[in-house]
Design a protein around this nucleic acid. Structure first.
Lengths: 174, 174
DNA sequence: ATACAAGTAAAACGAACGTTTTACATGTCA
DNA sequence: TGACATGTAAAACGTTCGTTTTACTTGTAT
């Protein structure tokens, strides 16, 4: 594993567990197991590092959403939550922590959320045989809600969302 | 308006717009229009101030949820978003920013989310004529999802959630 | 008159922040 | 052999952080 990957992985973990602002660069150098000189060579600066964490997370998360049915979207989220846990959406959290004032972070978040929305619309279209913007928005709300409700309600929130989506889909089919 | 209320209001605004960690006490004294000596007399310290902001917000938010129907819950959230905007749930955000490591904040968040969940169960019971834990969980997920999806999808996310809840409720009645 | 609560303005505290620099070790390739 | 890229260790940079302190003003109630 090269230094850049090691750094990005350590940063994602710390930013997710303790927050972006609360994570100091000293803690990061320690967790990544490298000197601060090397860290800055690969990271540029803290905001760029956060942006790279988000880009990498987007890649990993979106890869899991390469499915053909709405139900599989929720199954994928269940897997994600089981494997990675959930402390809320890291994209929204990083935007909120920076007040949207850090361009590279705001852009990474916007890109992810646009891709997320688009993927949902595609899956709904495949599953339903036609486009359905209203159902897509509802599925998006359910996925977003499951992610955040799971923080304090546990994985059951994802199952509840999954069942709700099934009902909405059935209804849209009629 | 007394100093404590002025401080709490200013703190809520700044913490919400820029994040808890990113908001310095200097900015807070300026926004609240008081000396740092007076601020600390009323606030105790930063974490206690955040906890008081959350307690006050809980009071204000829960007051809006004193309704008799599930649909009215979503109407109330629509009002809230229109009046206050949304940058995500301030309770979950403050917990995430502190990694859950600040007791007074973690407790204020837990108390709010417990009350939130309880209120939803009550409204569902009143609206449906019986308790329904599954539907309640789905309504909770929809409310949470609407709050967070509205950050980047706008107020339409709340209407979508509202319509979805109506369908789930209708179905639960049958 | 005086004691006291409650406020301001501003300096100071040590600690921690993000970042850069200095000095040195190592392996690799022309 | 020697230049170069890549790494470490550790000190130092100036800034900002949360918080406390010093010195002073004001309104109010005994």
């Amino acid at each position: 594993m090269d230094m850049t990957s090691k750094l990005t992985a350590a940063a994602e973990r710390l930013f997710d567990r303790h927050g972006y602002m609360a994570t100091g660069m000293d803690r990061l150098t320690e967790a990544a197991g490298m000197s601060s000189r090397t860290l800055y060579k690969h990271a540029g600066n803290k905001a760029q590092l956060m942006a790279r964490v988000l880009t990498e997370r987007d890649r990993r998360f979106m890869a899991r959403l390469e499915v053909q049915s709405v139900d599989a979207l929720f199954a994928a989220l269940e897997d994600w939550v089981r494997v990675e846990g959930t402390r809320g959406c890291l994209f929204l959290r990083s935007r909120a922590e920076t007040g949207g004032d850090t361009p590279e972070i705001a852009e990474a978040v916007a890109a992810h959320k646009a891709a997320f929305h688009k993927r949902i619309e595609e899956v709904v279209a495949v599953n339903l045989g036609r486009e359905d913007p209203v159902l897509s928005e509802q599925v998006l709300v359910l996925l977003e809600g499951a992610t955040h409700a799971a923080v304090y309600r546990g994985a059951g929130a994802v199952s509840a969302a999954r069942a709700a989506a099934a009902i909405l889909l059935e209804r849209a089919r009629a």
